[in-house]
Simulated scan of single mutants.
Amino acid sequence: MLDSVIVTVAVAALLLAAWCGFAAYRDSATKDWHFAGMAVVTLLALAQLVVSVVQLAHGDRPAQGLAVFLAYQIGAVCAIPAAAFMSLAERTRWGSAIVAAGGVVLAVLELRLHEIWGGGRG
C-alpha cells in the first residue's frame, strides 16, 4: 500500500474530526458543509480501496494476511458513511461528536492498515 495514500486519508479524517469536534464544542449539529467534508473523506477512502485492489491484482500481498487486510479496508470505507447516517439520526451537537469520533476511528484504521500491509513496505 502506498504510504502517501494512507497519510492522505488519515490526515483528511483527522481534519474532519477536528472540524466536527469544533462544531460539537460550539453546540452545533452537522450542517451541509460537514456532509460535503464527509463525502470528500469517503471518496479518499474509496480511492484507497481502488489502489489496494490494483496492488493486490499486481501480486502484492499484505504481510499479515489478505482476509485481515480486506476486513480493515472495508471498515475504513464504511466508517465515515456510518457516522454520517448516525449524525442524521441525532440532529444535535452529539451528531457532530459522532462524526468527529468516526474521523478518529478512520485515522486509527489507517494506521492499522499500514501495519497490516507491512509497515514501510509499499
Rank of each mutant, 00 (worst) to 15 (best):
Y25W: 12
S4H: 11
C20T: 14
A23C: 05
S87M: 07
R26I: 01
G103D: 08
G37K: 03
A100L: 07
I6F: 13
E110F: 05
A24I: 00
A84T: 02
V99T: 11
I74C: 13
L111G: 15
V68W: 10
A97D: 00
H114S: 14
I6V: 15
V5W: 05
A45D: 05
W19E: 10
M1Y: 05
Y72P: 01
G95C: 02
D27S: 05
L111N: 10
A39K: 12
Q55W: 08
C20M: 12
R121G: 02
G122E: 08
A101Y: 13
V99W: 03
A23P: 04
S28H: 07
V51P: 01
A10L: 07
Y25F: 11
S28P: 00
F69A: 09
Y25T: 01
Q55N: 11
F69L: 13
P81K: 07
A18R: 13
S96N: 09
Q64D: 01
A36R: 12
V7E: 15
A71E: 15
V53E: 15
A67D: 15
L46D: 07
Y25S: 04
D32L: 12
F69C: 07
L88C: 04
G102R: 04
E115S: 08
S28Y: 04
V54Q: 10
F35W: 14
A17M: 09
G118R: 02
V53I: 14
V5G: 04
L70S: 13
V50Y: 10
V68M: 13
P62W: 06
L16W: 00
Q48C: 10
G119E: 13
V54L: 11
L2T: 06
C20V: 02
S28C: 05
G122Q: 11
V77Q: 09
W19N: 01
A76N: 05
A76F: 01
G59S: 06
V7P: 00
Q73N: 13
L88Y: 04
A18L: 12
L113F: 04
A67N: 12
T42K: 01
G120C: 12
A10N: 07
V51R: 05
A83I: 04
C78K: 06
A12E: 07
F35N: 11
L88H: 03
A39Y: 05
L70Q: 14
G59L: 06
A97F: 03
D3R: 14
G65W: 05
T8Y: 09
A97G: 02
E90N: 14
L56W: 13
V51F: 04
A97P: 00
S4F: 11
T92N: 09
A24T: 01
Y72F: 14
R91I: 03
A89W: 08
E115C: 00
S28I: 10
A79T: 14
F85R: 10
L16D: 01
A83L: 06
Q73Y: 07
L66M: 12
M1E: 09
A83T: 01
Y72S: 08
S4P: 03
V50H: 08
F22C: 02
A36W: 15
L70D: 15
L46P: 00
G120V: 14
A18S: 08
G120S: 15
L16C: 01
G102N: 08
A71G: 14
L111A: 11
G122I: 02
W19G: 00
V99M: 14
A12H: 03
L109W: 04
M38S: 01
G103C: 05
I98W: 07
G103F: 03
I98V: 12
R121C: 04
A71R: 12
F85T: 07
G75V: 15
